[in-house]
Design a protein around this nucleic acid. Structure first.
Lengths: 110, 110
DNA sequence: TTTCTTTATCGTAATATTGCAATATTAAAT
DNA sequence: ATTTAATATTGCAATATTACGATAAAGAAA
């Protein structure tokens, strides 16, 4: 027990959930917002922007990367990270689709 | 150690993170999709739709409710749950804003 | 080469999540 | 009042996450 029953759900459900999960931590939201703010891809000072230890930030970056929220390449002794626009677009469309359906249905019993 | 350092981040960052976190599990995505599908708010058969025990489903519903993803009222011996369109809209706008900024910047170095 | 700087990984402790059986609760139905 | 049906809560075990110090790795600078 204790482990998520991934097998019992569809690929799409698991996919959306894993993207959402990656963004389900304020530090990772802060990282995404920082990457958005700096504009540039070369951003080797993420660690200094966050109230967390370097090891912790590195771990959060890894999770974002595994979930496809950010992408990065090795560039010298620093790393070039940036937001993967395709993933964000997927999320936007997913929630947009839900919004649309809700608006059409206008189920306001609650 | 081990607990999320909520205090170190902004309210908005924590808010978005908690919404995303609530959706960061395939069972909870499945619940949202089911609520969307059935259209009606009166839906007392969520448990039968999921490959999980009743207690587990109830727990997931509670998490979705606490995070504001769904709202529900007591209605007889069953519960009337439905998606909170305002929360979904917030998420859509949040990701829409990120997408817009990314498109403007066109930073495709990665 | 040695040192410096930056990021990654390992090991570990604290805490949180996931899942379920058992039980409680609550209101409708009989 | 008793039974039935549905959801909630409790308690617990298994697993995952969060965080950080220590250490490793790898390129840049001296």
């Amino acid at each position: 027990m204790g482990a998520t029953k991934t097998d019992h759900f569809t690929d799409k459900q698991n996919s959306i959930a894993s993207m959402a999960k990656a963004l389900g931590h304020p530090a990772r939201i802060a990282i995404v917002e920082y990457l958005l703010k700096v504009n540039e891809c070369i951003c080797g000072d993420i660690v200094n922007e966050l109230p967390l230890a370097q090891a912790t930030v590195s771990q959060h970056l890894k999770e974002l990367k595994v979930a496809g929220i950010i992408k990065g390449n090795i560039e010298g002794n620093s790393i070039c990270y940036c937001i993967d626009e395709k993933t964000i677009e997927k999320l936007q469309k997913y929630f947009g689709n839900i919004s649309d359906k809700l608006n059409k249905k206008k189920n306001n019993c609650c």
